[in-house]
């Protein structure tokens, strides 16, 4: 008992001291001096972050790391990917091990305030859904009263599930699982009637089944999961860099700037927003501590937001996610970049 009390005291004091120390640093200067961006990523999530047979990472979140590295260091390949687990991700950021955390992390009140992080924006609007076998004859999640449900422990989805069933006056039997792979296996083996996780994950899982047609994803989305890149609380300039890199990617799609016509538009575009973003007129880069062409390089890294979406998780890929909420605001979605002015 005394041991634990002692340890807890030591840990708590070290935590506050460590956070204070880590927050003092100037991340931009550190990254420039190091010459490489330390990017915290998922240890592996289909479509968002995965290494190929040669160990090269790719995915929707990886593209954010590359864009930031291109903007800051001038080279999208100057990224060190640091795989983090659900438990280690936030401490990796607050302790200074990573500069930016692009690891499909939900922007929540507690994480923003209590955990001392800043969210630079949202790069994917996700939400929790359910998948069931078609022969169960269920067409809505409200019919799942009394069902057994496979649920990953220690995630926000677990809490959402409890909240939603309580709010709808229904009961369920949880089957606790540790990882997506295990969840799929349990669901396939019939250990649970329904499998719940983020809708993007459900779509990827369903697409990977041998018999995707025998499974349906129910229409209800029971939670808001805005996923975005996070930075340490207190280094506002660095957060600005990540935020505006993300906005540059979204704005580029809105203004029709793609990796193909980037060079041409930076010379010939007459849209002042595009001109300012690409550094043709004015010098917005220095306000961030970068150079004029930072956004141009960020867009050149893997294309604009739409291109990144289409290449990694869009409808042309096997995962086949529709744009949905992640369409531009002009097309009925929520992707809205603040003006370059």
């Amino acid at each position: 008992m005394r041991y634990t009390a002692f340890l807890a005291t030591v840990a708590a004091s070290a935590l506050t001291a460590g956070v204070a120390l880590a927050a003092e640093g100037d991340t931009l200067a550190q990254v420039k001096q190091r010459g490489v961006l330390n990017c915290g990523v998922n240890t592996g999530l289909v479509g968002f972050a995965a290494p190929d047979a040669n160990g090269n990472w790719s995915g929707f979140d990886i593209a954010i790391c590359k864009a930031v590295a291109a903007a800051v260091l001038g080279d999208p390949s100057k990224v060190k990917y640091i795989p983090t687990t659900g438990q280690t991700r936030f401490t990796a950021l607050t302790s200074g091990e990573v500069d930016v955390l692009a690891r499909n992390s939900t922007w929540t009140f507690q994480r923003d305030t209590d955990l001392k992080m800043d969210f630079a924006g949202v790069n994917y609007y996700d939400g929790q859904g359910f998948m069931v076998r078609k022969d169960l004859g269920v067409s809505s999640a409200t019919e799942l009263d009394g069902a057994t449900i496979c649920i990953q422990t220690g995630t926000s989805t677990e809490l959402n599930l409890a909240d939603w069933f309580k709010a709808n006056n229904m009961t369920y039997q949880p089957v606790n699982i540790d990882s997506n792979a295990e969840g799929e296996q349990q669901y396939m083996a019939g250990a649970c009637d329904a499998y719940t996780t983020d809708a993007s994950g459900l779509a990827a899982t369903r697409a990977a089944f041998a018999d995707p047609d025998n499974h349906v994803i129910l229409p209800e989305i029971i939670s808001k999961e805005p996923l975005g890149p996070a930075t340490r609380h207190g280094d506002n300039n660095w957060t600005d860099i990540v935020r505006w890199t993300l906005y540059a990617l979204v704005s580029a799609e809105e203004y029709g700037v793609t990796s193909a016509n980037l060079d041409e538009l930076s010379r010939s575009s007459t849209n002042p927003d595009v001109q300012r973003m690409l550094g043709t007129i004015d010098d917005y880069g220095t306000m961030l501590g970068l150079d004029k062409e930072w956004a141009k390089r960020a867009i050149a890294a893997s294309g604009n937001y739409g291109e990144i979406f289409a290449a990694n998780i869009g409808e042309q890929t096997p995962i086949g996610l529709p744009r949905g909420l992640n369409a531009l605001w002009t097309q009925g979605g929520l992707m809205y970049a603040m003006p370059f002015r």
Binding site: N42, T43, G44, L45, V46, G47, A49, A50, P51, D52, P83, S179, N180, A181, E182, E184, Q185, A204, T205, A207, A208, F209, A210, T317, P318, I319
Partner: peptide, 15 residues
């Protein structure tokens, strides 16, 4: 390692 390899769509489901 296995989970990470399964994160590539090609091998998702090889449990």
């Amino acid at each position: 390692m296995a989970d990470t390899i399964r994160a590539t769509f090609a091998w998702k489901g090889a449990y």
